[in-house]
């Protein structure tokens, strides 16, 4: 199949960027979206140009590295799919495809489609953990965890930290990502001792990073490749509220 590819090109964070158009031929429906980009890059290199920079690593939908807006949608048209899992069979011969980097103030562009998501790491560093040092832990089965709680924790823990929720939110809000992390630990007994201080510190850091506020558009849920539900956001809001009113733990 043939496509017209419009790609965002930007040399580095401080240079202006713009869309560049290219006709691409010889695409097979069985190629993954990133294999299509590999081919485009191979062609560009053979012509003596500089390939389109994009982030990727595992190419099986689990590392959260791949990240791009495809025709205005984070990770493209298919639901519950990362960019690397998207295949060209989701497009038609002759389609125009626009690819752009994640759009958010808190994710500055590094080059072309590559952005800097270190703000996510800093949110976790602010409190997204259980303070259990290595060694001396009790037997793993000494504390029973109801299957429902453990399944719920797992639903939240499935977040791959890709940032699609932020990129697709009109406010550039990171609520779904933060709520997923908080929801993972809040649903387990191990997460209880620091539950409220964790919620407070993470949300504080989230605000400091320049992410926007949530006004219930739910674009995040729609674009999330791991189908993290927005109900975790309401759970998080309750914990943050509780933290500010009834808990003074630091």
């Amino acid at each position: 199949m043939k496509i017209t590819l419009h790609a965002w090109r930007q040399k580095d964070a401080n240079s202006p960027g713009g869309m560049q158009t290219r006709e691409v031929d010889g695409i097979s429906k069985d190629m993954s979206f990133l294999e299509m980009l590999d081919k485009v890059n191979e062609d560009i290199i053979n012509e003596g140009g500089e390939p389109i920079a994009f982030d990727h690593d595992c190419r099986e939908g689990i590392c959260g590295t791949c990240s791009m807006m495809i025709n205005g949608q984070a990770h493209g048209p298919d639901g519950g799919t990362t960019t690397c899992q998207l295949h060209m069979r989701s497009f038609q011969d002759g389609d125009a495809i626009h690819i752009e980097p994640w759009r958010s103030r808190a994710f500055p562009v590094v080059r072309d489609l590559v952005v800097d998501r270190s703000s996510f790491d800093r949110i976790v560093q602010a409190g997204g953990f259980v303070s259990a040092n290595t060694g001396g832990c009790q037997d793993a089965n000494s504390q029973l965890v109801p299957k429902v709680s453990s399944d719920l924790a797992m639903d939240a823990a499935a977040c791959i930290g890709c940032g699609a929720c932020v990129a697709s939110c009109p406010n550039g809000s990171a609520m779904l990502f933060v709520a997923a992390k908080i929801g993972h630990l809040a649903n387990l007994p191990q997460g209880q001792p620091e539950r409220y201080s964790r919620a407070r510190s993470m949300v504080k850091q989230m605000d400091a990073e320049g992410f926007g506020a949530c006004s219930n558009h739910y674009e995040c849920e729609a674009s999330c490749p791991k189908d993290i539900p927005v109900t975790f956001i309401s759970d998080m809001n309750r914990d943050v509220l509780k933290a500010s009113t009834c808990h003074s733990d630091k």
Partner: peptide, 22 residues
């Protein structure tokens, strides 16, 4: 065995049965 204890303490959501055991 210590690895599993450590991971559970950190909040790794290992699969459990209906009784709440791993």
């Amino acid at each position: 065995n210590s690895i599993i204890d450590q991971c559970v303490a950190q909040g790794v959501p290992f699969a459990r049965d209906y009784g709440g055991l791993l």
